[in-house]
Structure formats: C-alpha cells, structure tokens
Design a protein around this nucleic acid. Structure first.
Lengths: 357, 357
DNA sequence: AATATTTTGAGTATCGTACATCAAAACATG
DNA sequence: CATGTTTTGATGTACGATACTCAAAATATT
C-alpha cells in the first residue's frame, strides 16, 4: 500500500543519470560548444538558423542551465539596493532589520544588499535618491514607492538604463516597475472591515486614521475598508479620515480632538503608522464604553497593545517575507528566469491576542 | 538626508574585493591546499594542532565555504523523501501538490524530491515505510508523523544511519527528529477559540470534531481550544469531541446524530479533515438558528464554504511554505549549516471571507 | 640509529559554465 | 574567381571547491 513518485526530472544522458550539459546540447545540435555558448549568452556571430537548431536541441533534451556553475564562472555578484523610508515608522525599521538579516544569508549566494534611507512622504527626495543610484553598480532596486510623477519618471530612467526595479509595500502602478511585492491593500482594508464589523455589535461611528493620501497603500486600504463597512455593516458609519502623517504625536492630537467631538465612535481603524498616538489618545478617555481597535503592522508596540487588550486585531504583512521575496524576484529578473509566483504572494496576516507569534 | 549602508561583509583579499577562498586560508595558515581541504571535509591524516591552525586562519579571514562551488565539484545531489498520508484528506493532497511544485524549482539546486504515500492513522505502516527507505540513497526525510512508539523507533533507526529526519505538520516530540516543521497546534486551537468565542454571542454548546486522538496535532489543537473556551468564554461549553477519522461520511453521520441529540449547539470547531461532512450535516438542519463554524485548512472546498457563508473562519497553514521550509532545513542539516530560523517559522493564518487569497 | 607510521605538500583532473583567441570554413559581393 | 565578411570550430584558462595520487617530511616505535 505504499506508493512512491519521483519528482525530479531525472534524465539519463550517457551512463550517468545527471542533467544534460552544454556538451550534450552541442552534440545533439551538431555544433561546437563555442556555438552553444554564443547562443546561450546571446553573443554575436550566430546565424538564426543555427541558433534555432541549438534552441531546439535544448528543448529536446530539456536542458536547464546550471546557474550555480554559471555564476561561479562569471564571478557574478548581484548588487541590490533597497530604498526605504527614514523616520520613526516602526514598520520601516522592521524592513531595515529584515534587510540586514537577509543580507547575512544571501551573501553566500553572491547577493549584496544595500539600504538607502530617504525622507518619508517626499516624492522629489525619493526621485533624487533613485537618480543618484549608479546603474553601473546596481543590478536591482526595490523601492517603497511614493505614488508621484517624479518617482514614476525616476523609475523609468533607471529601468531604461538596465536596472531591474520593483516596488515594495506601497506600489506605483502606473510606473514601469517590473513588479510589486506586498499585500493587496484593498483586500487588507476589506479584512479590517470584516473584523471590525463583527467586533462592533452596537451601532455607531468608525474613525479611520491614515498617514497620507500620497501613499497608495493607505488610499487602497481606506477604499477597501469603507466599501465593506458601507455594504455589509449598515449599523456602522465611517467618519472622514484623520491624516496623522504616520507620526504618533500628530495622531494623538488629532484623534483626541475627534474623540471629544464625536461621542458616538465605537471603532477605530488605523491603517498607517503612529500606533503609540492611538493608545495615548484612548488612554485619556478611560471609563467610556470600550472602543474596538484594528491597526496595521505587528510592531513590538502593537504586540503589547494586543496583549493588554487595547488593540483587538492587527493586520500584518511579514517584513521578512517581503524582503526575501523581493530578493528572489530581483535575482530571477536579473537572470532572466521565471519566478515561482506561488511562493511570492505575500499573505495578509491577522493577529489577535491568541495567535501572536 | 540620504543615508546608505552596505550590508555585505565585503572583505578585501588581494587586489580584488572577493571573499577569501581556500587558497587564502592555506596561505594564512601556512599549509597546503590539500591540508585545508582535509580539514574542511574532515578527512583523516591531519594532526589536531594543524587542524587548529587552519581553523584559526579561517576564523581570522572570515572564510565561508562556497557551497555552490563545493556542490558543483562534488556533484552532490540532495535526495529528500516526503512521507505523506494517502487517502482523501484534501490537505494531504495540497502537500503533495506543493512537493511536486517545489520539485520543479529545486531541481536547479541539485535537490531531488520524492513522495511516499502511506495509509493514514497507521503507526505500524508508517514505521514500515520509514524502514523501507534505503539510507544509502536518502539524505533527508520529512514525515507527517503518527505519534506512536513504532514510528519513534523507526525514526531513531533512520537517524542512526545518517539520514536527517524532521517531522512535518504533525510532530512526534519524543522522537529524535532534528526538527518539527509546522504550526504550533496548541496556539492554533487557542486562536480558533478566540474567534469562535467572539463570534458566538449567545450562550450554548460547542461541538469539536477531530480526526483521531493518535494525531498529535489534533490533540494539541483540542487542548488549546478547550483551555481558552473554559477560561475566557464561560458562556460556552465544549461537548466531548467527535472522532471522524478525517472522513467526510463518518463526520456527517456522527455530527448529524450529535446535532439531533444536542439542540443547544451554537458553534462547531472542526480541527481535522472531512469538511464536506460538516457542510452536509449542517445542510440537513436548515432553519435552525445559525451555527458558527471554524475549521482548519483552506482547501478549495473550505474556500467555497467560506464564500457561501457556511464557514465563518478557516485556520490555515500554508502547505507550500511548509514544504519549502522543510527542504531548506533538510538541506542546511545535510550541509551542516545553521538554519535561518526567522524564515522557517510557519505562521497560523486566519482566513475569513474578506481576505481569501 | 634504523625502520615504520603518520602527516603534509605538490600536482592534477573534475564539475558546468563563461569568455577570449585564432584559425578554418561558409557565405556574400563585386 | 578573387576577395572580403560573417559564421563556426578548436582550444585553453578561469571560477572555487573536491578528491585523488605520489613523494617528501615529520613523527613514533623498536
């Protein structure tokens, strides 16, 4: 009753079962190694007929280039740059830590990671940082994008000069970035609404706290959230969002004012950073009926607030996954390889007190 | 205002900035390449003083062996075997698919994956399958363990013959498996309780459906679940669990009987497989007050039930992550390398209608 | 001191690919 | 047909390690 399957594409070449090599391809195509090599690395001096013969031979044999050997030979180094936002944003700090952590493991694979910090919410500064990168010394870039025209153009310039660019966490969909690595923020907003809608049994108002309408991820989260609340939870109503610029003090001030002005608030959805401000604003109005709180990003602080019961749920994206995924995708883009998409989708994690990692 | 950090350990060796190689180590230690190689692959014929000199030289230079080059030279293949349960269990099918998918990508790294299916809930059969593996042709094994003495012993025998063994999804903690890859099932049970406790506002009984008390993961989930319900949701009471053997028909039959016998049931926690049986049993009693349902594993079927509103939440572990993690860990164990633990912890995913991937 | 044994050095081939050079062959052009 | 140009072949070296052989040197044993 024990069945067994081999999952490798074990092909017999000569006597040894190993994978086909360039030599096998050369023999199969009836050309020399040099020609196969020329085709493989598209170097000039091969007629298209010959090139096709080689390609067909590779097809027939199921030839797969051994990237480890190729890189060994090339002494190739992948030089990747991460452009992250500077400032007090805890999630950005987690991304920075993740880059540092990942770097120590990817150095074995000839992948070098570099972090560049730019001021937050500042399109021109980000564009300048992108332009400052030397395309001769950079193979790939992952950027937490501000969705502004300057940034789109700077990405286009980099891409035109042969650098692979992808956006991270916050997208700039109209740019020529090869890919976006991050969660679907509309879905994240919907998820928050699904939680908050169930948690708030009594009718009332929901206060949304966002960082900036310049950040695509914030805009998308708000959209998803408001849509689901309006459609599925008619007993709740969303107030116009507070823009706290991801800064705890600003958030505290604005939210305190709002809470004082609107006594009917039963839930808060904070979709950016500055969670300390939320806790401090809530602390001030002890005794009032319990407000349900859903926030984003499982920072150490948010974790504590979950445990103490101030926050009810946290929507999270795993910074480590995102960095590693960005590295894998950039490497694949640079190698001209396909990506393993199933592995690269970043999931929207829900954390409550009970399933904290 | 733009700061920049290099995260690679860029060391200058000669004129080129590359990493130190065996030649550098040999020079630094004042020995020949052959001796360095002997130390590196602990082959006999090196005095311990010399070995120490070499080790110190490697330390000083920060030498890191280039595994890609080493494997190229060794023509090493990592032969890994996955022992999964046969049968109708959808999650096992997802694991099988994940192995197949992963295999096509790991073959580039000289990693060959093989799947062996064994009858479910059958310790002796699993032990026999483990014993049937040829240690000469197997470098690593990942096994969905039945927590029984036969299996523990079989794992010990394999490990003693030099095969790296880890448990997958369901652990056998007292065995000598090098590691467990999977979620913390006690925490998963607690999470389910946190959800069901909030979803069930009215007092009543909770019906637990499990597969078998032989499976460690099921036992642990039950434990976590019952603990939290008893402690935090006193308006709910857990009935003695139903053992459905992960079989839809059995589950349907037993659950229907239970629902008929106990009219006060307000929630169901299904912690094993056989979700079709749950849906069918619930279909029979249309019109009665809505029962909240939390189940495990986001199979295509569970997905449909979430969308149609029969299930309220699904606790999931990502089969793809688990397989890839198992592969990475086994490879690291075989290479004698440290593992990147942050990457390898499998998270407990909560899915509701709103955040389906 | 003579011999046996262990430890070390030097050299070479190999893995699968990249890349450069030079000569030979094929093709095109006037 | 001679000439020029493009395409192809043959060959060698390199990448960073493994793994072997054979001889020399350093120890250990009697």
């Amino acid at each position: 009753m024990v069945r067994s399957d081999r999952e490798d594409r074990g092909r017999a070449a000569d006597g040894v079962p190993g994978r086909p090599t360039v030599r096998d391809v050369a023999r199969e195509a009836g050309v020399s190694l040099a020609t196969v090599d020329r085709v493989l690395n598209d170097r000039p001096g091969v007629r298209k007929v010959t090139a096709r013969r080689v390609a067909e031979a590779m097809e027939r044999l199921g030839y797969q280039r051994d990237m480890a050997a190729a890189n060994l030979s090339k002494r190739r180094h992948y030089r990747l740059v991460f452009l992250l936002a500077d400032g007090t944003n805890s999630f950005m700090h987690m991304l920075r830590d993740a880059v540092r952590n990942t770097a120590s493991f990817t150095s074995m694979d000839r992948i070098e990671l570099q972090t560049v910090l730019v001021p937050p919410f500042d399109g021109p500064a980000l564009a300048a940082a992108l332009d400052a990168l030397d395309p001769e010394e950079t193979d790939g870039v992952a950027v937490v994008a501000t969705d502004s025209p300057e940034v789109r153009d700077a990405i286009a310039r980099l891409a035109a000069r042969g650098v692979r660019v992808l956006t991270l966490v916050s997208d700039a969909p109209t740019s020529v970035r090869a890919r976006f690595v991050g969660i679907d923020n509309v879905v994240a907003g919907r998820t928050a609404a699904g939680l908050l809608g169930r948690f708030c049994a009594a009718p009332g108002q929901i206060c949304i706290v966002m960082g900036s309408a310049l950040l695509r991820d914030h805009v998308e989260r708000r959209l998803g959230f408001e849509t689901v609340i309006a459609r599925e939870y008619p007993h709740l109503r969303c107030l116009p969002p507070i823009e706290g610029r991801d800064d705890a003090d600003t958030v505290e001030q604005l939210l305190s004012a709002r809470l004082a002005a609107e006594p009917g608030i039963v839930g808060i959805y904070s979709l950016g950073a500055g969670n300390r401000g939320i806790v401090r604003a809530l602390d001030r109005r002890r005794g009032d009926p319990r407000i349900q709180v859903v926030v984003h990003e499982l920072t150490p602080y948010a974790r504590g607030a979950l445990i103490s019961g101030v926050f009810d749920a946290v929507i999270n994206q795993d910074a480590g996954h995102e960095i590693r995924s960005a590295v894998r995708i950039l490497k694949a883009l640079i190698d001209g390889r396909p990506t393993f998409d199933a592995q690269e989708s970043i999931s929207i994690d829900i954390f409550m007190r009970d399933n904290l990692p």
